[in-house]
């Protein structure tokens, strides 16, 4: 039985290239579209960041305006802690013992804070 051989003159060349019609727009239009979208994004981002600046400025000025109030609150808290500390010392030691060898007021370098501190 004769062996299967290629046809006389060999096989026809295989066409690897596929002739598929190009779909969609040309690439340049996609590029332009992308940049338009990006431009709109930066436009919105610009005003968004401006608004953020405004909010930050407003908050900072709000803080500055209530600064005396905040300071008073802190002083009051400081005083309350100081007297509570004194009372605790008196209860422990029995007398009004002085910690520092001075008659001047020494601002306490430590405070008792609540166990749970919230920011």
């Amino acid at each position: 039985m004769p062996q299967d051989m290629p046809p006389q003159g060999g096989y026809l060349p295989v066409q690897y290239k596929r002739n598929i019609p190009a779909r969609g727009f040309r690439p340049i239009y996609y590029l332009i579209g992308m940049h338009l979208i990006m431009g709109y994004g930066y436009y919105k981002l610009f005003y968004g960041v401006r608004e953020q600046y405004e909010l930050a400025r407003e908050k900072m000025w709000g803080r500055i305006h209530i600064m005396p109030l905040l300071q008073a609150e802190e002083d009051r808290d400081q005083a309350r802690r100081y007297f509570a500390d004194k009372a605790r010392e008196k209860e422990l030691l029995g007398t009004d013992a002085k910690i520092y060898n001075s008659d001047r007021f020494v601002r306490p370098t430590f405070t008792y804070t609540p166990s749970k501190v919230t920011q």
């Binding site: 992308m34 979208i37 990006m38 709109y40 994004g41 930066y42 919105k44 981002l45 005003y47 968004g48 960041v49 608004e51 953020q52």
Partner: peptide
């Protein structure tokens, strides 16, 4: 939260 103005998809599309 900083994407309230615009989601970052638009400026950073690529």
């Amino acid at each position: 939260e900083s994407q309230k103005a615009v989601s970052l998809l638009l400026p950073l599309l690529p």
